[in-house]
Simulated scan of single mutants.
Amino acid sequence: MSRETSEWLNQNVLVGYTDQRGTAWHYRRSAQGVEPNHYPGPIPVEDVKRRLFGWQPVSIPMGGNLQELLGADNPAWKTYTDHQLIIRSDTLDLLGKFKDGFTIHHYDEWLLTKVANLLDTDLHIGSAGLLKNGAVAWVSIEMTETITAAGVRFRPHLLAATSVDGSLSSTYKPVVQLVVCDNTMDIALGEGGAAVKIKHSRHSKFKVAEVRDALGIVHQAADEFSAEVERLTRIEVPDRVWSAFLDEYTPVPAQKGRARTIAENTRTELERLWNHDQRVAPWQGTAFGVHQATNTYLHHYATIRNVGRAERNMDNVLSTKLGEVETATQRALDKALNRASDRALIRL
């Protein structure tokens, strides 16, 4: 399921607005310790600071005296005397190592304070969490009410994320989560959605006005997604078009082997989602259902290697991966629709 254990996800990921969207996929009450990680409404900012950001990433410069700076030492760190080290202040775990030039973007400042300044309002936090032992963090800021368009219930939010291991620039991106599942979808299908990324360098700056203009913020995202949902749910995808879509999206090689097995397994899973899964089946027979099928497959069933599913899904959202999948989905669907149209003309 995830490289992060169930205990980690249940104690280091906070989930809000469960009265409107239910529990997260990783929910397990017995793994949450003394304090539940699910909230019926928004997550209080102070809880995020206390439960997730109550420690600091500490920079140990090249050649720095670990004993003096941290009051502790670790023989393993001595192998990195020519690196800047990023140490977790509470556990003293090594989170990152760099030659030079890396600047820490502290979580409470870059994911809470700067976002509050960006939105110029109180923060309504829908989720927040740590991955990779705290080397990656995110906060999502949501509208208080769920929106419905063409029978699709969704929650637009601004996702802010950063890292202290160099794996992720500080990233700000409006995305949409469907209430029926943990899937997110890019606002502009096929374009990857708007995003602002700020590198961890000495000269990179967070300029509120520029970031606000680039993102268009959450309300605009809600309008754009509503229009896209209306359009996609009006496009009919009967069984023959769905079969043609599968041929375009996941062609099965003629020669037996691993590639053929993977393609057959992918098609089987997509068929199951299309016909039976509550995250997809309500929109069976529409273009929106097709996108939901490939998106759900990517988030929950696609093979992953060397990374946890939670981390992989976060990377998909913040990178261009979702946009690439949705572009491929739309391209294959357009071809399937054109094929069906051509056949209809031939019959006439």
Rank of each mutant, 00 (worst) to 15 (best):
H26Y: 15
G96C: 12
L111E: 01
P36M: 04
W25I: 02
L112P: 06
L118N: 03
Y27V: 00
L94A: 11
L95S: 08
I141T: 14
W55P: 00
I87R: 06
Y39M: 04
G33W: 03
G63Y: 03
L52M: 05
I125W: 09
L9W: 03
I104N: 09
P61W: 04
L52V: 04
K97A: 11
T23F: 05
Y27Q: 03
S30G: 09
S127T: 09
S127K: 11
Q32K: 00
T103S: 13
E46A: 14
G33S: 05
P44V: 07
W138C: 05
Y80H: 12
R51F: 04
F102K: 04
K97M: 09
N74H: 15
W25L: 03
E7G: 00
V45Y: 08
G134M: 10
S127F: 04
G63L: 03
E4S: 11
Y107K: 02
L118E: 01
L118K: 02
P42E: 13
A31V: 00
E109Y: 04
L66C: 15
H38E: 11
K114E: 10
T103R: 14
L131P: 07
Y27W: 14
V48Y: 05
G63K: 01
L70S: 06
E142G: 00
M62P: 13
P36A: 09
L52S: 04
I86H: 10
T103H: 12
R21L: 02
E109F: 00
K99L: 10
W55Y: 12
L92W: 04
V15S: 07
D93L: 06
G96R: 07
G134F: 10
G16V: 10
L95W: 15
G63P: 02
D93G: 05
Q84Y: 06
P61L: 08
T91N: 06
A31W: 02
L112F: 05
M62V: 14
Y39E: 08
F98G: 05
V34L: 14
L112S: 09
A137C: 08
D90S: 14
D100A: 12
M62K: 15
D100K: 14
E109N: 06
E46Q: 15
L9C: 03
N12C: 04
V58K: 12
W8V: 00
L52E: 02
R50C: 05
P57D: 09
V139R: 12
E142M: 09
A31L: 08
D108H: 14
L14R: 08
Q84H: 13
L111G: 02
G54H: 11
D19M: 05
A116N: 03
T79I: 10
K78A: 15
P40C: 08
L85E: 13
P61E: 10
R88V: 01
S89Q: 12
I125P: 08
A24K: 00
F102V: 06
G33A: 04
N74M: 09
L123G: 09
T5G: 08
G101Y: 04
L94R: 09
D100E: 13
V45K: 15
G64C: 07
G101M: 05
P61R: 06
L52I: 03
I87M: 06
Q11K: 11
L112A: 08
L66T: 15
P36E: 07
L9D: 00
V48T: 06
G41D: 14
V13K: 02
T23H: 06
P61I: 09
